[in-house]
Amino acid sequence: MSLNRKRVPGALLWAVTLAFLVPKLALATDPTSLAEIIDDGSTFRFGLALRVAPNTVTVTTVYNRIAGALVDAGASMVQGVPVVSQLAVQTDAQGRFWVDAPPRPEGQPPLPDGVYSRWLEVSHVPGPGARSRAPFRERRTLYFRVVNGVAQRLTLAAYSAQVDPASQRKNKLGSLEPAHPGVLAARQSVLQTNPLPLVESGTAYSTPDNSEQGQ
């Protein structure tokens, strides 16, 4: 089938018009979870829209980054901060479920200053006799910064800009593009040396000359 068969220029106006007339019916999206985490983006209280029995879910938080430093998998405490914490599911007067996920529980010393990321995870284990049920996890990542002991939520973009800023490099066309620095880790095993397929040679992107003779 030709991809552009129906994209004739004369139909462009109609296509734009139809796109506005019937937008919702055509949008193909991802299903919602049976345990949605509702995040207002500014506080540390999260709503839970549960379509499974509340007694089949547990909620935990797991720190991924503490005061700027990434946390090793399996670590239990970093800079005096517990990596994993269990949260209690609570119900309000209208029967809505929510959890409080304060950066540091009340009565505990303040968190060290720095940037943090943390998962809020809802785990569901089906009860006996449940039809077609499998365990699952739903997760939301929350980002925040602590300054003088006070925590303030960050967006994904703000968090990424702080901990993973991009620089610039010249691409194969000679244009500047953003680039991130890769990380090198010590090798633990023998490097495999299987051949990789070439997708594109760089010959067309470079003008031969002798400018580097003798290097």
């Binding site: 070439l198 040679s201 003008t207 031969p208």
Partner: peptide, 29 residues
């Protein structure tokens, strides 16, 4: 100099093989 693009196909490491002397990106180095 841009030498080329390869696709990672092996589930572990891999090797890119390319011509050097005489190619446009060689430039006498």
């Amino acid at each position: 100099e841009y030498i080329g693009t390869w696709i990672l196909v092996n589930p572990t490491g891999g090797c890119a093989t390319f011509e050097w002397e005489g190619e446009s990106y060689f430039k006498g180095e």
